[in-house]
Amino acid sequence: MSRNKSWNELSVVSRWRIAVMGITQLTLQFVALRDLVKRPAAEVRGAKSAWAAASFINFLGPVAYLVFGRMRRVK
């Protein structure tokens, strides 16, 4: 069984991929949590606290909230 590579053993391309994926994850989570804080509870499907906890699940949580957790605002 091979061991995991350390950061210094990764190629430059691999390091960039990891950095981009990390930044994307943090951005999605920031957007989801910011929307949760600003959106009234009546416009959220389910409990806001549950969606906030779900936002910590990599990619899936924030995307699920942004797609399924919000109700469209009627203007």
Rank of each mutant, 00 (worst) to 15 (best):
R3M: 09
N4H: 08
S6P: 00
N8W: 03
N8P: 01
E9H: 01
V12M: 07
V12N: 11
S14T: 14
S14Q: 15
R17W: 07
I18D: 10
I18S: 10
A19Q: 08
V20W: 08
I23N: 06
I23Y: 07
I23M: 14
T24N: 06
Q25F: 15
Q29F: 05
V31Y: 11
A32F: 03
L33E: 11
R34K: 10
V37I: 09
V37C: 00
V37S: 11
R39D: 00
P40E: 04
P40S: 03
A41K: 05
A42H: 02
A42W: 00
A42E: 14
V44R: 00
R45Q: 12
R45C: 04
G46V: 06
A47Q: 12
A47F: 05
S49P: 00
S49T: 13
S49L: 11
S49A: 14
S49D: 10
S49N: 08
A52T: 03
A52L: 06
S55V: 00
S55W: 01
F56I: 00
N58Q: 07
F59W: 11
G61E: 03
P62D: 07
P62R: 06
P62K: 09
V63S: 11
V63K: 07
A64G: 04
A64I: 02
Y65H: 01
Y65Q: 07
Y65W: 04
L66I: 10
L66K: 04
F68N: 10
F68C: 14
R70L: 12
R72L: 02
R73E: 14
